[in-house]
Design a binder for these strands. Sequence first.
DNA 1: CGCCATCACTTCCCGTGTCAAGTAATGTGG
DNA 2: CCACATTACTTGACACGGGAAGTGATGGCG
Lengths: 168, 168
Amino acid sequence: MVDDDTRWLTRDETHAWIALVSLTVHLPHALDTQLQRDAGLSLTEYQVLSWLSMATRRTRRMRDLAARADVSLSHLSRIVARLEARGWVRRHPEPTDGRTTLATLTDDGWDKVVATAPGHAAEVRRRVFDGLTPAQVAALTDVARHVTDACGVTLPPIDGDPDDPDAT
Amino acid sequence: MVDDDTRWLTRDETHAWIALVSLTVHLPHALDTQLQRDAGLSLTEYQVLSWLSMATRRTRRMRDLAARADVSLSHLSRIVARLEARGWVRRHPEPTDGRTTLATLTDDGWDKVVATAPGHAAEVRRRVFDGLTPAQVAALTDVARHVTDACGVTLPPIDGDPDDPDAT
DNA sequence: CGCCATCACTTCCCGTGTCAAGTAATGTGG
DNA sequence: CCACATTACTTGACACGGGAAGTGATGGCG
């Protein structure tokens, strides 16, 4: 009745799997709670502000920003609408292509990131990196990249547009 | 202006962090997509059915099931209501304590799990374990447990109620 | 025995995210 | 130079999940 050609998980893999599922639920929740409490931001909102703050001229195309922050374009559209209403981001059309929208971090948005980052970093440290050895950090990096690759994810570069002549 | 006592993430930790965030977004999404397509189930719904199928007498208290499946009790209440409407789970009160509700997997529910499990296992294998060495699996387990512990998660035992005299 | 705190769930309200349809600006082939 | 497909984003309808409040059942204590 059962297809026993199925390659089931081994015992060790099952344990890893259970732990990993738990992580994917509780870690984002813990970070979200801290950000909401201390900064009135959701994790995804913070990620978007954070990636913008790292971009050349604090500006990115919506499309690239969505890929970088791991959200769909429609989702990003809503997030940025919220952030714009709070004065932290401004949207304006790309001059050379009227279809493309650029999102830029305002000065207030920059200040918000600067004010929020230390608490967020401390939370990430507390929940993830405190108590991990460098070897474990390296293993985590390899495994996480392996998994995201296997999920077919392709990310744009971390820095600003490579063809932007004003790039540092 | 900036509190430079902040213990920022190192370069390696930042890379690990970026990869880990990506994982927490894309891995659940990939698994959800496969289950939805092949079985008409969300990942959380499948997890609930799966944990029930492993429990002694296919029965668990709602409370324990919620903790085990990493969902809130209110969330579980809705999930089980959906599964009950589809005939895969039945709820009934615990005889010795009228407050407690027991959830039991029906025969149809069991068949559903049996039919769904191989495809799900294959997806987990493809997205996570294929290409990982045993050492990486072990490291993943350690890190994931470390993180969930740091998020203050406590899980009930995997088997059925320890004080159930009928337990195997 | 009776009152109140507690526990175990359920339900309500709300924000968020997703999929699909809509809109506007570009390329492209005749 | 004019349809038509394509790209890039926005919006609308809907489902899911979280937290607070509600409901019913227990336990503890005077």
